[in-house]
Design a protein around this nucleic acid. Structure first.
Lengths: 185, 185
DNA sequence: AGGCTAGCAGAACCACGGTTCTTTTTGCGG
DNA sequence: CCGCAAAAAGAACCGTGGTTCTGCTAGCCT
């Protein structure tokens, strides 16, 4: 084949990372072999290495993609014209948690503990989420109580921090819950 | 050697798990080889396998030991005759966090995601901690406001859950912080 | 004090899995 | 359409690391 068109290429990359995330969520980062990912994605070893230099790079890409998706969802909730109060915001955030992604997320935390590159990704993403929540909370404060926006932003900071903390804890709890337990949708 | 006395045996086991936790905290569960642990502990391969059937079992033992130690500390704070208010309790809990153990703890969470045995250990330990915090919080409520103890216990439940959540989040944040950053004690 | 037995050291084994190489196929530019 | 270079398949390679095996060593029991 000649150089794949950029759209196709991006599609393949997504196909690979999505299969990878499913595998990781099922068996963990180190316990899923490249062979597992080929089986899950329907592709082959060579194909994967044509798109990612190494397994580590694939993990990074998967982490970025997953966390970005999560931040995306959060961003939508936060940008709603009628900003929800913190409790409501938290409720929405937690209800949007996907079990498989939660598992992968926790595994990524563990990896971040050791690998600086992953560490940067995770910290960056948490900061971004915190900022989103911060914005949302200040908007709510201003709308609910009026007053000085910069003072509201000041007061919103600790609230945002707490919302994020509770969200992360909820994510952890979801990740720890056995995968078969929540098939009652 | 003849059969080691039980005390000595327990000592060796502790020596091994402590070395293992240091290694895990430094390089992660899967990236530390048995060879690394032998180097860190000053013992040899054979010695380790004389005390633990496999690496998985060693990880479980290390997890149990570390989490138990953490619960121990928490228990002391919770059993103080003058029960601290929730904020103070949380502050004490977080101040007792050791960075290396925090890292190992997060890695254990990730492992729990995949391995049911580890999962049971983690969930059990979190439940135990929650119970301790719950006890402490009800004691504080009763002392601060008087009233019906069973009603106080009822009202303490969500507070305890939140304290635990915030504690876990703080643990995560500590684990993510680079190891070299907090050498300013 | 001495020896028997279990701990311990360290080499050797073996399998698994990441990466690479070769061959075949395929899609896009001319 | 045609061909070429890139991508995909899959076999092969190689290192790493968990486990096991073989002695030797040293502590407890009599």
């Amino acid at each position: 084949m000649p150089r794949l068109t950029d759209a196709r290429k991006e599609l393949r990359r997504a196909q690979i990372t999505e299969a990878a995330v499913r595998c990781f969520g099922r068996s963990g980062l180190e316990r899923t072999s490249i062979a597992d990912i080929t089986a899950e994605s329907g592709l082959s070893t060579g194909s994967i290495y044509a798109h990612y230099r190494s397994k580590a790079e694939l993990v990074q890409a998967s982490a970025r993609a997953t966390l970005a998706k999560r931040a995306e969802v959060l961003g939508e909730y936060a940008r709603a014209e009628n900003p929800p109060d913190p409790d409501e915001l938290l409720a929405r955030m937690t209800s949007a948690i996907d079990p498989v992604e939660a598992r992968f997320g926790v595994q990524i935390w563990a990896e971040a503990t050791t690998d600086p590159a992953i560490g940067r990704i995770v910290e960056d993403m948490i900061d971004r989420m915190r900022l989103l929540v911060h914005d949302c909370t200040t908007a709510w404060l201003v709308k609910a109580e009026g007053g000085d926006p910069v003072a509201a932003r000041e007061r919103a900071a600790p609230i945002a921090r707490r919302v994020i903390a509770l969200y992360l804890a909820e994510l952890l709890q979801t990740a720890l819950r056995p995968l078969t337990e929540e098939t009652t949708s």
